[in-house]
Structure formats: C-alpha cells, structure tokens
C-alpha cells in the first residue's frame, strides 16, 4: 500500500470513528435560547416605545440594538456569555449579541498587549469576515439598484 492509499484509508477510518455532535439536542437549545434573545429584544423595544412615546419606531429599533449589544458585551466581560454560547451554540451566535461577543471577547483577551496593537488590532479577528461580507454585499446590492435606476 503506498502512502496516499494508506492516508486515504486512515482518514476514512477516522471519520467513521470520530464522535458526532448530537444534532437534535443542540438544535433544540439553539432554537429556544435564540428565540429568548429575540423576545428580550422585542421586550426592550416595547418598553422604549412605552416610556418614550415621542420616539419614532425606527429610532426605537436602533436603541434596542444598542441595549442588546451593551448587554452582550457586559456579559462577555463578566465571563457569562461564553457559558451561554457553550450551551446554546448558534442560538447565541446568530443574534446581534453574538456579534457583540465576537468583538468584545478578543478585546478582553488582547488588552494586555497594549491599546492600539493589542486591543484595537485584534478586536476584529473574528468579526472581521462578517463586516467584510456586509460591506461587499451592500456594494453589490447598491450596484444592482443603480443598474435598475438607469
């Protein structure tokens, strides 16, 4: 048996042996934690509109996001959010709180390497791709919009 065949056979053997993530329990946890975070967001939104009736609905959304981002960063700093994430998986990554966590966690981690080269540079190591994808897709959408205007 030559080297390539040996490696292929071994990889096949390992992938058959490797323990799999249990899909249904983790999907269930993601679903209800993700849903709960969304409900909290809606609750905050409703409260803002209740206490400040003069605010327009759109600014209330913005304030809701600010509050959620703050809460997630705060919980990250306290060391709670990674425990939620360990339990909920995608349920706590997909909402905006996960995005907040992905920026604040490297900031906490690399703080001791200096403000500029440590914290500011490393802050976007995980969130970077998301931001790039957001900018690229908005450029593409803008381009399509521009074509239809012509």
């Amino acid at each position: 048996m030559n080297r390539e065949q040996r490696n292929l056979a071994y990889n096949k053997y390992v992938s058959a042996k490797i323990p799999k993530t249990k899909a249904w329990p983790s999907l269930f946890n993601s679903f209800w934690v993700g849903g709960l975070i969304c409900c909290i967001g809606q609750g905050i939104n409703d409260l803002i509109l209740l206490f400040f009736p003069s605010i327009s609905e759109q600014s209330a959304w913005a304030y809701t996001l600010v509050v959620l981002i703050f809460l997630a960063s705060f919980l990250t700093g306290l060391g709670v959010y990674d425990k939620i994430g360990k339990f909920a998986g995608g349920g706590s990554i997909v909402p905006i709180t996960g995005f907040s966590n992905s920026i604040s966690s490297p900031a906490v981690e690399f703080k001791n390497e200096g403000i500029i080269y440590g914290m500011c540079v490393k802050m976007f190591t995980i969130a970077g791709p998301v931001i790039v994808a957001g900018i690229v897709s908005s450029v593409i959408v803008g381009f399509i919009y521009w074509i239809f205007l012509i």
Partner: peptide, 13 residues
C-alpha cells in the same frame, strides 16, 4: 484557537 470569552461550542473530539 479562539479568545476565551467567545461563546462557541467545542466539537466532541
């Protein structure tokens, strides 16, 4: 790997 406080799951292996 990732920062300590990042909320991600570890695979079973």
């Amino acid at each position: 790997r990732f920062p300590l406080e990042l909320g991600n799951q570890r695979p079973p292996a």
